[in-house]
């Protein structure tokens, strides 16, 4: 059962996700209180262990905010993150959990709007489920 205020862990790439979160805050956009933000040097650092640990500790969902394909400062870090997320989604489905618990979200540094929108979409998905 998902509470009204779901706990979401956002792993944010320092190059894109973090500035986007800060942009959203500076614009005063609505973000849920249950959002926990973890900055990482690269989206590709969001390792399987982190994502599973977050779910294990009771997070309702995990989001990985990384750079768009073709814009990673470390060439392919974002692609690795995406592959990892897709793999974990498959696994979740196999054990009967919703794959929507882990999502990969590419963002640009100056797109606070999109950041808030994606988080809201995730909240809606969780509450709708």
């Amino acid at each position: 059962m998902v509470s009204k205020n779901p706990k979401i862990v956002a792993f944010c790439c320092e190059e894109s996700g973090m500035p986007a979160y800060e942009h959203a805050v500076s614009l005063g956009l609505d973000l849920p209180d249950g959002l926990k933000v973890v900055a990482l040097p690269c989206g590709g650092k969001a390792e399987t262990g982190y994502l599973m640990k977050a779910l294990d500790e009771g997070a309702d969902a995990v989001m990985v905010f990384a750079c768009y394909e073709g814009n990673c400062k470390y060439v392919r870090g974002n692609i690795r993150a995406e592959k990892r997320v897709n793999y974990l989604r498959e696994r979740l489905e196999k054990i009967g959990l919703s794959p929507e618990k882990i999502v990969f979200c590419p963002v640009a540094p100056a797109s606070g709007q999109r950041f808030a929108e994606l988080v809201q979409r995730e909240v809606d998905t969780l509450l709708g489920a």
């Binding site: 973890v38 990482l40 040097p41 690269c42 590709g44 650092k45 969001a46 390792e47 399987t48 262990g49 982190y50 640990k53 400062k73 470390y74 870090g77 690795r80």
Partner: peptide
């Protein structure tokens, strides 16, 4: 210090000195 190696190392032999896994966990 991007941490890509640390996140993929199957033996967990690599850590970011400035940002070890324990901090996140």
């Amino acid at each position: 210090g991007c941490g890509l190696c640390a996140s993929e190392c199957p033996a967990k032999a690599i850590q970011l000195i400035y940002y070890p896994d324990m901090e996140v966990l």
